[in-house]
Each structure stands twice: as C-alpha cells, then as structure tokens.
Amino acid sequence: MEREEIITKNKIHPHKLTLWIGIGSIVMMFAGLTSAYIVKRNQAGWVSYDLPMAFWYSTIVILLSSATIYLADKSFRSRAMGNYRRWMTVTAVLGIVFMVIQYVGFKAFWSQGMTLQANVAYSFLYVIVGLHALHVAGGVISLIVMSLMAFSKKKRVYSTVPVELIGTYWHFVDALWIYLLIFLILIR
C-alpha cells in the first residue's frame, strides 16, 4: 500500500524540499542583515575597513571542504564506505579549521582597535560573519554525527538522503560565505 502511494508521485524527497525551504529562510535572515548593512553604510559615521587576511585562507578551506563532501557523497553512492568515512571526516575537520581561521581573523581585526563596539561597521562584520560561522558549526555537528554513525558497525544505512541533505546544506553555507565575502569587499 505504502509502495503504491509513493511510486505514483516521483517528486523531490520531502526532507530535501524541507531543507530547500529552510535554506530560503536562512537566506532571508542574511538578506535582512545585509540590507540593514547597506542602509547603515549610507548614513553618517560609517567607516570603511579592509577584511582580515585570514578570511581569504578560510575561503580556500571552505571551498576545499565543498570538494571533499562531494567526494564523500560520490563514495557513498558507489558504496565505497571506507572512502566515504574518510571524506566525511576530512570535511568535518575542514569545517572546524574554517571556524578556527574565522576566529583568528576576528582576533586580528579586534587587536587593530576594530572592536565590536568601536563602530557600527565593525559590529555588522562580527554579527554577520559570526552568524555564518554558527551555521557552519551546525553543519559540522551533523557531519560529526554522520561520520560516527558511518564508523559504527551496528547500523547500516543505505538511504542516500541524509548524505544528500548534508551535502546540499554544506554547499549552501559555502555559497553563503562566498556571497558574504564578495558583499563585504564590494560594499564597505
């Protein structure tokens, strides 16, 4: 009975659809923040600044991690579970490295006198980049959980959905970072 119900509808998987709508929702939050940023930039008291060098390194790291999660997804599909576990772990590590570099960038920025309270321009940078890092952290936690599950001998997972979900989300936080980086460089 269940089988019949499903085969009649060859639609996108409900969990994936939910994720896409959720991504739309996150986009709206950052759209709200970046438009507030644009409004504020056109008002008195705004100061321009250069992004910390570290953000360029973190960009390379997160781009790399998008490649590794793609490889993880590919390995899972061909049931190369050893490779899958390896790439998932590498991606999680790269995610953590990304957050560490962001923190290092913040620290360098802060030590140059550009503290959270010094100017609204800096406040925006901390809030926007910080919130993005939180979204990366969410992804890292899911990656760690999935990697641990992949190492567990007891459970065998055959559905590709969780892997696709985390893959989509991870590419999204990557793309979101690229957008934010370009935004922060062009509009300052």
Binding site: E2, H13, Y158, S159, V161
Partner: peptide, 14 residues
C-alpha cells in the same frame, strides 16, 4: 534509484 530513496524515506516518515 530515486524512487527507492523516496520509498525508504517515506517509510521513515510513516
């Protein structure tokens, strides 16, 4: 492949 994936997940959901 996708149909199978659908099934398993719909099965989860239900």
């Amino acid at each position: 492949d996708t149909v199978a994936a659908h099934e398993s997940a719909m099965h989860d959901a239900h």
